[in-house]
Computed example of a mutant assay.
Amino acid sequence: MLPYTTYLIDLDGVVYRGNELLPGAREFVQWLEANGKKYIFLTNNSFATGSQILAKLERLGIPATPEHLMSAGQAAMQNIARRLPGARVYIVGEQPLVELAQEYGLTVVEVDAEEADVVLVGLDRFFDYSKLTCAVRIVLAGALFITINRDPLLPIAGGGFLPGCGTLAAAIEAGTGVTPEVVGKPEPMLLLEAMERLGSKPEETVMIGDGLDVDILAGQAAGTHTILVLSGRNNRADIEVSPIKPEHVYEDLADLLRQLQQVKS
């Protein structure tokens, strides 16, 4: 634990489950603050805004500020703005994603545009044939093609599903033959952009998550250390049969915190 100056922390299944705060989450964040650690909460969510996620953390008793949260949408904008400052972006997505692009100094083109530098795909409940046609034409003309994540389905309250942004990206991919760059976990871009913001290196950073094939795989791809907590998706039996092995395993953040408190910061 001694080399870890930076903690990248998944939310659902690690900090909370639904509207329930998980054991040790509040105390773990207090420990990070007290010991001067750098940390960011990470989420693949392309639908909820940053303010909505921060408000949820506040309701659960975890004070959080914007610098301690990075969504896959933010990571995408940060990455595009660094590679193509002021780029024209065609967005398959809803208003929060449009506003986020504008915050990063990017130019959002109209939904019927014929040209752009980038096609960026997020969750879009108003996706239609016209948007598909424009996105396909722009990618075929040479635009960079990026999707927030490749999740085909988005779970919703009551046990149902919506098509996720991965489904929308797949339609554009089918029409163009171009494979999109993926921002969200298990790809490494979200983690790399978080470390870019914090000024941290992979060797001093640890990814904490509850999913072997999402969080731990992303950490390995980004070159960070990895911690799996068993308060979410995976259990010890899953670890036994998975080719993806975390460096450390704890029951939850409370269990992790007990270990950290035994190590001199």
Rank of each mutant, 00 (worst) to 15 (best):
T107K: 11
T107I: 04
V108D: 04
V108I: 02
V108H: 00
V109R: 05
V109Y: 01
V109G: 06
D112L: 10
A113H: 01
E114P: 00
E114S: 09
E114M: 11
E114C: 04
E115I: 05
D117T: 02
V118R: 00
V118Y: 00
V119W: 05
V119Y: 02
L120K: 02
L120G: 04
L120P: 11
V121Q: 07
L123V: 10
D124P: 08
D124A: 10
R125H: 09
R125Q: 12
F126V: 09
F126T: 13
F126D: 10
F127R: 10
F127I: 12
D128Q: 07
D128T: 05
Y129L: 14
Y129G: 08
S130V: 14
S130W: 08
K131F: 14
K131Y: 07
T133D: 04
T133S: 12
T133N: 12
C134D: 03
C134H: 14
V136K: 11
R137T: 05
R137H: 13
V139G: 08
L140Q: 15
G142N: 06
A143L: 05
A143K: 06
A143E: 09
L144K: 13
F145K: 12
I146G: 07
I146T: 14
T147G: 15
I148E: 03
N149M: 01
N149Q: 01
D151W: 07
D151V: 08
P152W: 00
P152Y: 03
L153Q: 05
L153N: 07
L153C: 02
L154F: 13
L154K: 11
L154Y: 12
L154M: 12
L154D: 03
L154H: 07
P155E: 02
P155A: 09
I156S: 07
A157C: 06
G158W: 13
G158N: 08
G158I: 11
G160E: 13
G160K: 13
L162K: 11
G164M: 01
G164W: 00
G164I: 03
G164H: 01
G164P: 06
G166Y: 04
G166E: 03
G166M: 07
T167M: 03
T167S: 13
A169K: 12
A170S: 15
A170E: 11
A171D: 02
A171F: 15
I172W: 14
I172V: 15
E173V: 02
E173G: 04
E173L: 11
A174V: 00
G175R: 01
G175Q: 04
T176K: 09
T176I: 12
V178Y: 08
V178Q: 10
T179M: 11
P180C: 13
P180D: 11
E181H: 07
V182G: 06
V182E: 11
V182K: 14
V182P: 13
G184M: 02
G184Y: 05
K185H: 15
P186A: 04
P188G: 05
P188T: 09
P188W: 09
M189F: 13
L190Y: 07
L191D: 02
L191P: 02
L191S: 04
L192K: 14
L192T: 10
E193Q: 15
E193V: 14
E193A: 12
A194P: 15
A194Y: 07
M195R: 01
M195H: 04
E196T: 14
E196G: 12
R197P: 00
L198I: 10
L198K: 07
G199N: 08
G199K: 06
G199A: 02
G199D: 00
S200F: 00
K201R: 15
P202E: 00
E204I: 01
T205P: 03
V206Q: 03
M207I: 15
I208P: 03
